[in-house]
Amino acid sequence: MKTRSILLVEDNAQDEMLMLLALNKVALANRIDVVRDGQQALDYLFAQGEYSARKPEDSPAVVLLDISLPRLSGLEVLEQLRASPITKLLPIVLLTSSDEEKDRLRGYEHGANSYVRKPLDFGAFAETVARLGVYWIATNEPPGGD
């Protein structure tokens, strides 16, 4: 079985670093690709623009999608992904620092598979990321996979 990548959509460099640190602690074999805004995420997933060389069917195991992104917000990205047949069933976890119930509800409305609040405590954060990674990579058989 070919190891699929994890796509992290995060514009904050420090959060990205911490996220990578946390994911590394879990010692996953998956390659972690990072894109820094909504448009890049769409280009990556639809294999267009700067990612046109990529094969579209080479989809990531899970997308960790931050809500507040420049250009296209996480929710707009989510909306477009769910609208496309290629990415309709792609596992997407929304990452956010907001406690707002509104965000959570809107996230689910647009079809996020899960929601994770970025905890302030790094220990807790790392634990959450680890659980997330293990859960989606190890237990979830992504739809449409081979």
Partner: peptide, 24 residues
């Protein structure tokens, strides 16, 4: 208030996170 508190969280996470990573 929402935006400010939202955006203030990221640097805090960095401060807290990196000091934790340093310690760990």
């Amino acid at each position: 208030a929402y935006a400010v508190s939202h955006d203030l969280r990221a640097p805090l996470r960095a401060m807290s996170g990196f000091s934790q990573v340093l310690l760990d």
